[in-house]
């Protein structure tokens, strides 16, 4: 797959925190690439290089194959969706006008804009009536969704998200993450997202990039990285309970057996995670679960199967 974003030996000299040193990284089309690391690691700087909010002191940033330093930054920015932690909705414009921002900048005809607004509200599962309201009347969750709708408005192939759910409470965060995963699956957009929350990174990403002190420490699929050799990466991503984190990354469908479960076994959906499955076993005291969906039985998952699905690295 072609790289939508490519950083080639990019450095940003800030003198201390938030700088970058010789970063080389590619983000392929359709990836949901999550930049994670402690604060000051340079995650946001790396993200802001992509739409030229930050200029590199050395190296080249390519977007869709073109060196962005040679092109008009305004046109570049209009072609990329952008969402941030504080949402930054325009307080003096209605929800509909907020969403219409980039389409207007791009000079879309009004009927097309008018048709696009309800489409996006529906995509974010927001009430169509919201379009006429001002941002201060929205709940936190609604505002976050409107921010995402605004970023998606002109149907950009690339989306930049800087701690997009950072200001939300834990319950809302979980809902918004599920929403983002769904939208990523539906639209197939390339998304570059910054977070300092390792759990969020593992849950959302198709690829995780770990940054520390302005360098890329590791990059790869979540399951790969969680058993990475680097102790910093392992600690950051695994936290206090790396085994449980890993259970959360594997679906029941990937670990189940085709054999039927004993009658009366509790039922779990194939899309649920193994940590959900373990939790259900503990709650119901059942060692074998039936895997099923919409009344159909697909197979079974026992405790041994669950253990086999998550091999642990040999103790160091």
């Amino acid at each position: 797959m072609a790289a939508v974003i490519a950083f080639e030996d990019v450095s940003v000299a800030y003198g201390g925190r938030d700088g970058l040193r010789d970063v080389t990284l590619e983000v392929a089309a359709g990836e949901l690439c999550v930049l994670v690391g402690p604060s000051g690691a340079g995650k946001s700087t790396l993200l802001r290089l992509v739409n030229r909010l930050v200029a590199p002191s050395a190296g080249v940033v390519r977007v869709r194959g073109e060196d962005i330093a040679r092109n008009d930054p305004i046109r570049l920015r209009r072609s990329i969706g952008y969402a941030i932690q504080s949402v930054g909705l325009f307080p003096h414009r209605t929800v509909g006008e907020n969403i219409a921002t980039v389409p207007r900048l791009l000079g879309w005809p009004e009927p097309r804009i008018a048709a696009r607004i309800p489409e996006l509200l529906a995509l974010l599962r927001l009430d169509a009536d919201l379009a006429a309201r001002y941002p201060h009347t929205l709940s936190g969750g609604q505002a976050q969704r409107v921010g995402l709708a605004r970023a998606l408005a002109a149907d950009p192939d690339l989306l930049l998200m800087d701690e997009p759910f950072g200001a939300a409470d834990p319950i809302l965060r979980r809902a918004l993450r599920a929403e983002l995963r769904r939208i990523h699956a539906v639209t197939g957009k390339t998304i570059l997202l910054v977070t300092h929350d390792a759990e969020e990174a593992l849950e959302l990403a198709t690829r995780v990039v770990v940054l520390r002190d302005g360098r890329v420490l590791a990059a790869g699929a979540p399951l790969e990285l969680i058993r990475a050799a680097d102790p910093f990466v392992r600690d950051l991503l695994g936290g206090d309970a790396p085994a449980l984190r890993r259970l959360g990354l594997v679906t029941v469908a990937a670990a189940m057996a085709a054999t039927a479960a004993p009658a009366g076994a509790p039922v779990i959906a194939p899309g649920a995670s193994l940590s959900d499955a373990l939790s259900l076993m503990l709650e119901t005291r059942a060692e074998v679960l039936a895997v099923g969906e919409d009344g159909r039985t697909l197979g079974s998952l026992g405790l041994p199967g669950l253990l086999r699905a998550v091999p642990m690295p040999a103790p160091a």
Binding site: I74, R77, R78, G88, F90, L160
Partner: peptide
């Protein structure tokens, strides 16, 4: 607010438009 101006720039408004809009 600073973040509102920041978002306006990041979405591709030039200086004149940020001021006007």
């Amino acid at each position: 607010p600073r973040e509102v101006v920041g978002v306006a720039e990041a979405m591709g408004m030039d200086e004149a438009r940020v001021t006007r809009a």
